[in-house]
Design a protein around this nucleic acid. Structure first.
Length: 559
RNA sequence: GUCCCAGUAGCUCAGUGGAUAGAGCGACCGCCUCCUAAGCGGUAGGCCACGGGUUCAACUCCCGUCUGGGACACCA
């Protein structure tokens, strides 16, 4: 149990004993859990709680009076009193807690003991999560519109796993339907030197695909039109999907399952889904088409699953895919969609309700705003190579995987963002990924030197009582926050919190480094303080590395 | 017309109901004879779009207005 959790438990304990003793009346609304705040102002201690303010009304007692009683309880609590150097009442009734030095050492010890496991929790343990992201059509290269999810989705998967969830990352492959046929037709047209279909695909990559396919299968061009289109379609699809997989792999983004849309219609699965939905009573027939009455659950119109001509509407796939995920045992289905799909939110939630589920619990839809990319101050839209828009691969070539991933992840997804290629290539404070990586490399350098000088550091050399500098206190405080940051990032599905946190941590470290000499100067003899500071450095490097690992960004030992 | 998102320092943006609203860039002034200056410190810069409401407490929650961006097919 971390020191923070210990304190939280102690406060709850204090509150209930105050109620038992009659200091707090029975009608006081004592919460069952509470989270301590980290005050921004150093004068307000290491942790603070406003619980006295919150209780004042229901208890009918002035907040400062409650705070005073609480203060007395905490100081008399044998299990916690020795961890506290101070319990102060401030302002209207805040309770400010200052940790004893020895308790701060507990944070360092926990980090060194847990290593790469530090920060993990069990807040989501037992929850089976299906995380679906990217899900690009396999009819072209991955482009800028997919990059944000490729990075954020992957990071979210890592964060959820760190919080104990059982996560399956899934890529939905739209391998059937009109678009696929157009794709095949476009490749075939290129192979035969014919004009492309009007609504078809026009990128140069189509010509490349055509060339590759014709080389290995010249006979495709001689097949009857329909068969030929299908042959080109299937071959092109296989090549394009493999290409997407290669690029995602290079992006350090990995999937557990590549789910085929086509498979939803094999082995009578769709029919089974329809029967399942019918049992819930929201399926109906109208003018020869089969509908789902999503308006029963707040959708603005009902949705067609099977059109009157017997063909499947897109919503048929959505429905069957949803049923498939639930039948495969997932409790929480996370969908990561682009802003252009926000109209899907209501119908997907209504679909969950139509299937008898609770949309608040079983489905979670994240909408990502657009990404723009700037180079030399101009927006990049056209890509010579793809003939359409800039590809994910080109972005990686320009700025590298670490910078691309980090930048894409560090903003909340519901705000539009601009990536400036020139900034991402710069090696200054302006470029947060370097700022953070540099802090890690810097620590590694110090620790190499420490080892050369024969200075001992590690779990046996924490010496918390020697770490008296304000910068040291600040650094230890930041390190201790990591587990709660991971837990909240997972709960809120906001991996950008990890990035913001590690930037803050790197800043705190750089300030510590500027003020506190870690290694002996000149001929100075090594002391316990040198060991203690080197140990603090080591634990900081560990937390930075753990943070970057959650983002899928490397933590270099040298730069 | 309906719906979604945004509006915070000159610029790009953080900020899960708490105390004096933050960071980077840009501007100005400083810090390397010794651990990575890809770093650190300081100064200047804010009616948190506007108006109501809820609350002990609102940048944060609710309603409305204005401005900007996007979405609204028996399309995939």
């Amino acid at each position: 149990m971390s020191i923070q959790e210990k304190l939280e438990a102690a406060i709850l304990r204090a509150l209930s004993s105050l109620r038992e003793s009659g200091t707090l009346p029975a009608q006081a609304e004592i919460p069952t859990s509470l989270t301590l705040e980290r005050p921004k102002n150093r004068d307000h201690g290491d942790y603070a709680t406003s619980i006295a303010l919150a209780l004042a009304k229901s208890a009918g007692i002035p907040p400062r009076e409650i705070a005073t009683a609480l203060q007395g309880q905490l100081l008399a609590d044998g299990e916690i009193a020795q961890d506290l150097a101070g319990v102060d009442i401030a302002g209207p009734g805040f309770l400010n807690l200052t940790l004893a030095k020895a308790s701060q050492g507990g944070t360092i010890e926990a980090i060194l003991k847990s290593g790469s496991e530090f920060g993990k929790s069990s807040t989501l343990s037992g929850v089976k999560v299906n995380l679906e992201f990217v899900s690009a059509n396999p009819t072209g290269p991955l482009h800028l519109g997919h990059t944000r999810w490729a990075a954020v989705g992957d990071a979210l998967g890592r964060v959820l796993s760190a919080a104990g969830a059982d996560v399956t990352r899934e890529f939905y492959v739209n391998d059937r339907g009109v678009q696929m046929d157009l794709f095949g037709e476009s490749i075939r047209s290129s192979a035969l030197g014919m004009p492309r279909p009007e609504a078809g695909y026009h990128g140069l990559y189509i010509d490349e695909l055509a060339k590759i396919i014709v080389e290995s299968h010249p006979e495709f061009t001689k097949l009857p039109e329909s068969e030929s289109i299908h042959a080109f379609r299937d071959a092109g699809y296989a090549l394009q999907l493999a290409d997407q997989q290669r690029v995602l792999d290079a992006m350090n983004t990995h999937f557990d399952i590549w789910f085929s849309e086509k498979s939803l219609y094999e082995n009578n699965f769709f029919h089974h889904c329809l029967e399942t939905l019918k049992k819930q009573g929201h399926v109906f027939e109208h003018e020869g088409a089969i509908w789902l009455r999503t308006t029963d659950f707040g959708d603005d119109k009902d949705r067609v699953m099977i059109k009157s001509d017997g063909s499947f509407a897109y919503f048929a796939s959505d429905s069957a895919y949803y049923i498939s995920k639930r039948e495969r045992g997932f409790d929480v289905l996370i969908y990561m969609l682009g802003a252009d799909h926000h109209g899907y939110v209501n119908r997907l939630k209504a679909l969950a309700s139509c299937a008898g589920d609770d949309p608040k619990k079983n489905i979670d839809i994240l909408i990502g705003q657009l990404v723009k990319i700037l180079e030399n101050g101009e927006e990049l839209k056209l890509s010579k190579r793809a003939g359409t828009i800039i590809t994910l691969e080109e972005l990686i070539e320009k700025v590298g995987v670490d910078a691309a991933r980090y930048t894409l992840i560090r903003y909340p997804v519901d705000t539009p963002m601009v990536m400036d290629v020139d900034v991402l290539r710069s090696r200054t404070n302006e470029n947060p990924v370097y700022y953070v990586q540099y802090a890690h490399a810097r620590i590694c350098g110090v620790l190499r030197n420490a080892a050369d000088l024969g200075i001992a550091f590690g779990a046996d050399h924490i010496h918390p009582e020697l770490l008296e500098n304000e910068r040291e206190r600040e650094l230890i405080g930041s390190l201790g926050e990591f587990p709660r940051i991971v837990a909240s990032a997972a709960e809120l599905r906001e991996p950008h919190r990890i990035a913001r946190y590690v930037e803050e941590l790197a800043g705190v470290y750089h300030r510590f480094y500027a003020d506190c000499r870690v290694l002996p100067l000149g001929d100075e003899a090594p002391t316990s303080l040198h060991s203690a500071r080197a140990t603090l450095c080591k634990s900081t490097a560990q937390v930075i590395a753990n943070s970057l690992a959650l983002l899928g960004v490397s933590a270099p030992e040298k730069m």
